[in-house]
Amino acid sequence: MDKTLIIGYGSPIRGDDAIGPLAVERLVERGLPVGVEAIARHVLTAELVTELAGRERAIFLDAAAGGEPGMVQVHRLEPDVDAHSTMAHFLDPSELLAWCRQLYGQAPEAYLITATGACFDYAHCQLSPVAEAALERLLEQVERVWVG
């Protein structure tokens, strides 16, 4: 099992919400370093906890709705048992980390890297220009985090 897991998540048909999965696509195209695995998902589902168990580091990539469009931010995440989702079929990354700690003894060191989107309309299958520009900066931050 690779030490670092990158999870990019978001909807591919909601415009800039797709930035997480698209970032994973770019990372895989460019080649991942040894010890790093990257996967793309629509949402964070419960079974992802088994993917996190045993990892040293997890990097979540997501679009953000708040702040200036194009802004890229890196957040350190901690397991949070109070972060439960009201919807049953997707989870907050901190909640997923809490599941991991509770069920498998420990959670990986985790980061959430976000890029603020400009357009989240339905049936939009391309990034806005501002999100497209932010994608490269987001990838730079991912590399910084996995290098440590």
Partner: peptide
């Protein structure tokens, strides 16, 4: 009274639930 309560009381059941869902998915 939530999934974390279940994990504390019966972690094997919670792990089983995750695994079964994972198998289906």
């Amino acid at each position: 009274r939530n999934i974390f309560g279940v994990m504390r009381q019966n972690p094997e059941l919670a792990r089983d639930g995750i695994r079964l869902r994972q198998i289906g998915q």
